[in-house]
Design a protein around this nucleic acid. Structure first.
Lengths: 338, 338
DNA sequence: AGCTTTCCGGCAACCGTTTTCCTAATTTTC
DNA sequence: GAAAATTAGGAAAACGGTTGCCGGAAAGCT
């Protein structure tokens, strides 16, 4: 595999086509008034030299880089990828690209990346993260617009695009009620985690609207399968009966499912199960396949990117924008056959 | 949250410090011979204006952007993230950043990204992907060095850094032999998938070296838990006895584990189990925790980045470089207590 | 033929930064 | 006290591209 010596410059192209540099530029960008023959000649020269205009030099003039930066608060992973993909989709249509920076939960690293992005003159910045918690603004007085996606900024004046987790939890409970369950338990992540609290509170609230109590007070623990299994032990040890469990994550739900089966309870006949995240690995690996709340992360990324574009073009959308979650129903909560 | 009008330029800094532009540049970069007092004055002015040098303009001069591009062949995900993190680590030390592009299995998109990266004048390109299969070179005659990580290039002259999957499979078998298992089955992914074939062949070869036959001929299917469960049905239906299963992925292993338990076989007492990938979600979710082969993806990314740096500095490392896998032993293959 | 109009394409300024000279001022040396 | 050496900082030329302005040539008009 050979290696070309160096990048061709527009001067090379101009020389080969026998025109001046300015003319070559106009020919390639469809500007100015040139004979069609000249335009073709320049284009051919460019093709021959595999000329690609130097984006840095170009942006020097336009003031735009057609690049946005994306900083993940914590490490890049299961939640930030879909957000990234959604953002790429929305930006790709406008021929912009995304510069991804992995903050790794390190504020120093994060600040370093902010500076790097600014020095690269990105047109805007998207901040995302694994948790929906509000976080301190990434910096004050930046010369470019910033949009927070999934995670939100503690400053209400900043633009944040977040999932309506409470709404999602309510939908989960409504679905369980609709399939005839009334003794519903809730197993979720650590109480210090914002998502766990919000989802639990919304679930309880929705139950209360029906005049119902939960089958047991919400069980806070971790986000893991192991905790889900452990929680089933706690539920079974308690005297309360339950015919459904709404879980704060799919991993928890899967643990719950495995433990229920081991204890001789059938899913969904004896206990209906709903998870949160709609993570295919879990929903499909689970037996039976798991009903789950989908936060529409790609949509979040897309919206965030669109708002960022609008802000870049001078129309910011300050404030917190909550996007609806939707429920994906699978066998784990199917109505038992008559 | 305010928004600064525009980026400060070095001319602004120079004006504020009362020096010429050239002097300001020297002051900030530690070049030239200046009075310490002047240097400080310029630095202070820069701080006051939150000046960040325009990287594009700067690279115009140096010819280097201190950026490398990373293109994922397929969609960015579980395998490419660790590679990315490893690469970032190796490059971060040299103050370089990574521009991530998601090819999404679309050759047109991929070519578009190659052009974008070239126009951004990246110093080099890393190509990665979900599969270890050799792929067609991303382009011929690029003006920058390219390194393939995890995935490899079909051109043997290109630099590829790949895991030694065969070695990993041999280690898995050796471990099972070491804990006294002799009737070993192999369940893996689709036969058209290179990794599945390589791992299966290496496992058989290692068994043959001990004069052993596998407990059944390798079962090729998919990479999912569902296939793992299904494969256990096939194994149990066959007349052959087996005391261990080596699986082509952790997901398969987990499916196998669940199905074995459902069939009344104990893991590891009756059947020892080894997976491949060492994916924490699976190894920890599995009951008992799963022994697995780790391909050291971060190490792969790190090595790839180091070789890319070397190539950028004029010392390429052409050819295919295989890095060793290692086995992480957990309870699923623990020696049964006497 | 002499004038205006239209069409092409070149010239040069500019974007922000670095770096190579170069000059003026200061210090050293005899 | 004059010559030489050193030092501090400025002017200007790159780097690669874009664009506004201008001029020459050809064509159209009277």
């Amino acid at each position: 595999m050979g290696k070309l010596e160096r990048h061709a410059t527009i001067a090379d192209v101009a020389a080969l086509a026998g025109v001046s540099v300015g003319t070559a530029s106009k020919a390639l960008n469809g500007r100015g008034s040139l004979r069609e023959e000249t335009r073709m000649r320049v284009r051919e020269a460019a093709r021959q030299l595999s000329f690609e205009a130097n984006a840095g030099a170009r942006s020097l003039h336009s003031g735009r880089t057609y690049t946005v930066g994306m900083i993940t608060t914590d490490t890049i992973g299961r939640f930030s990828i879909p957000v990234l993909i959604g953002a790429e989709d929305a930006l790709g249509a406008g021929e912009m690209s995304v510069f991804l920076c992995d903050g790794r939960d390190d504020p120093i690293r994060e600040q370093y990346y902010v500076r790097t992005l600014l020095s690269r003159r990105v047109d805007g910045i998207i901040v995302t993260g694994r948790r929906t918690e509000a976080r301190a603004p990434i910096a004050a007085d930046l010369p470019v617009p910033v949009v927070y996606a999934f995670i939100s900024s503690a400053d209400p004046g900043d633009c944040s695009v977040v999932p309506d987790e409470a709404g999602g939890a309510r939908k989960a409970v409504e679905h369980l009620l609709a399939v005839g369950r009334t003794r519903i338990a809730h197993v979720t992540g650590p109480e210090h985690h914002n998502s766990a609290r919000v989802r639990a509170a919304a679930a309880l609230e929705r139950l209360a609207e029906e005049g119902l109590e939960p089958a047991a007070s919400p069980l806070f623990g971790g986000w893991s399968e192991a905790w889900g299994r452990q929680a089933v032990g706690i539920l079974l040890a308690g005297r309360a009966e339950f015919d459904a469990v709404f879980c704060g994550s799919d991993q928890i739900a899967r643990g719950v499912c495995d433990a229920l089966r081991a204890a001789g309870r059938r899913v969904p006949q004896d206990v209906a199960l709903v998870g949160f995240d709609n993570w295919d690995v879990m929903t499909e690996g689970c037996q039976p396949p798991l009903t789950s709340v989908d936060m529409n992360l790609e949509g979040l990324g897309r919206s965030a990117a669109e708002m960022l574009l609008a802000a870049i073009n001078g129309s910011p959308s300050p404030g917190r924008h909550a996007l609806p979650c939707h429920l994906v129903v699978r066998e784990s909560s199917a109505v038992p056959l008559p």
